[in-house]
Design a protein around this nucleic acid. Sequence first.
DNA 1: ACCAATATTGGAATATTATTCCTTTCAACC
DNA 2: GGTTGAAAGGAATAATATTCCAATATTGGT
Lengths: 154, 154
Amino acid sequence: MNELDSFDLSILKVLQEDSSIHMQALAERVNLSKTPCWRRVKKLEESGYIRKYVALLDHRKLGLSVMAYVQVSMKDHDLNTLQVFLDFVEQSPYILDCHATAGNFDYVMKVIAADTEELENFLMRELLSSGVIQSTNTNLILRQKKSTTELPVK
Amino acid sequence: MNELDSFDLSILKVLQEDSSIHMQALAERVNLSKTPCWRRVKKLEESGYIRKYVALLDHRKLGLSVMAYVQVSMKDHDLNTLQVFLDFVEQSPYILDCHATAGNFDYVMKVIAADTEELENFLMRELLSSGVIQSTNTNLILRQKKSTTELPVK
DNA sequence: ACCAATATTGGAATATTATTCCTTTCAACC
DNA sequence: GGTTGAAAGGAATAATATTCCAATATTGGT
């Protein structure tokens, strides 16, 4: 798929807000009839512009009320150490995000837990006991002001 | 809705991985027939456990290759200053996340842009010119290792 | 500017999937 | 063990997605 025209961009904008919309309604919102609209959606899926469709859940209702940023430094930068860490990150459901950043620490992770006790347990028993971490710095999130999956499409 | 049983939890787990699954297939995965499965999904939607359904897009394909954490300190903590800042955050499509954290800065934001130039423009022309920021500290994200919307449900 | 070739659209027909309705099964309580 | 309420499952119906084909628009060449 080469390039996106304004129809495609409109479709993406709507679907990243609400993917439960029907083809009929989507088509009307982007000023197409449903057949060409449907074809464009399929193309956007196949070409990977749309990665997946997901349900977003309410973390509070699920009893997950504590979030934090955890900055971590690795004990060394061997390939094996790195791999152990990344496998740990991938497999841990508490870790929502993990990025290597420019700055004092190697990685910044966003973690979620039911309460501070569970968070502490996670950090101590799981993260630190993986044996590849030199140090961590945890910043609790006090208030979540914005959190969106919507990317800025023109 | 009082409490979730293991059927409900299974449903949530599947839907936050892939919400494009059909009732038939979902029902089979959670060991129900489709009618009761459908009723549970509706209940989870109505009661707010499921907040919304969205399409997740590929930011690279959309030409958004730069992400960063931006820590900000407010010039003061007046209610009005705060409101100006929060309105700005809400309205800016570059800002994906914004949280108040315990630590040296008032807020941590995750921002996305096409390139470093666009990021710089955003910070200078939009964020700082809002007039309510004292200082900022930007950490570019070098490598994205994990980024998920899936919450840990038991 | 015209024509041919190609791609895209839109409406109608069909297939698939969601939703409702009704009967049956299960479980808790007396 | 029988009775009541709640949840499950199958069959019928309604809604929606997908395909098919004819019509329209767009592109490139002369």
